[in-house]
Design a protein around this nucleic acid. Structure first.
Lengths: 154, 154
DNA sequence: GTGAGAGCTGAAGTCAGCTTGAGGTCAAGG
DNA sequence: CCTTGACCTCAAGCTGACTTCAGCTCTCAC
């Protein structure tokens, strides 16, 4: 871990695939850290690459940066995270993934039955009107499983 | 289809689950239309409910409003869309759904092997570093299948 | 005919997650 | 030493999909 091992932002850009602007943004937001040279330029430890990979995967399944930060904050402060530290984090979003897959599959199945049965009547089709009681509930999407109520972000 | 059949915006809110503001926004954006009373209030035909259901489902799988509008524009102009019109539209995003499911499953499998094998070394793990050539490609996500490169919208 | 609640408009605001730009500084090969 | 390309900061801008607000008008049951 001598100075030799530190990465410039350009190297991190090349090796992580994130643009400069995103790396600086993530630093401002407290997701990653960097030391500085005497001249003020960033120098990253190698470990940042694993963090960035984690961030990318988390983002890909729709987890917001706030939550990603919380997850990363749960990594041990003093020492380099071990395998089991990362495993614990990863396992936590494995559940999310399962939920999302399940939800998409449910949507697909509903769609299949729609296409197959030709029932496209609002009154009968499970997809268009899942249980004849649409509109009786609270805010947000009504015909989708919970895990799919997030994607339309706004 | 006499006047009696037209819905007020409040009724559409109740039956579609979309808030007033979204309905007006969709109208401005050309996704749905409404006739007006002499006093200028909106009156919707029943068919709007099916359109809105379509919009919601499309949004749920991450399709943007622009593309949803294009899809809806492909519906026949003069007549009420038939079953096969809707079927055609739906079939087109069924493919998307398949892609997304496939991508998420791939991510999950990668994650499984990571958790299982304890390989969390950046150099070897398929999930963290899928083919040892990370960083050699163009913009955007590198460790995810194409269909997952969209979700982090910004 | 009237009061209350439903509806109207246009402009501005919000949120996430960055990107872009201007204007200047640092680091290192020759 | 000098040049050149990498890097810096701060502020503002952007996209998508809406929401919120102010201030006013319509509709309809009584």
């Amino acid at each position: 871990m001598d100075t030799h091992d530190l990465l410039t932002i350009g190297e991190v850009v090349d090796r992580s695939g994130f643009p400069h602007s995103a790396l600086r943004y993530y630093e401002r937001e407290g997701l990653v850290t960097a030391t500085r040279t005497s001249g003020g330029q960033r120098r990253y430890e190698r470990g940042v690459l694993r963090k960035l990979a984690f961030i990318r995967a988390a983002r890909a399944i729709g987890i917001g940066l706030d939550e990603v930060r919380e997850a990363l904050d749960r990594l041990p402060a003093g020492r380099t995270p071990t395998k089991s530290d990362w495993t614990r984090l990863s396992r936590s979003w494995r559940g999310r993934l399962d939920e999302q897959i399940e939800a998409l599959v449910a949507l697909r199945d509903g769609l299949d039955s729609c296409i197959g049965c030709g029932c496209l009547s609002l009154a009968r089709c499970r997809l268009w009107n899942p249980d004849d009681r649409i509109g009786a509930q609270g805010d947000g999407a009504r015909l989708l499983p919970p895990a799919l109520r997030r994607p339309p972000v706004g």
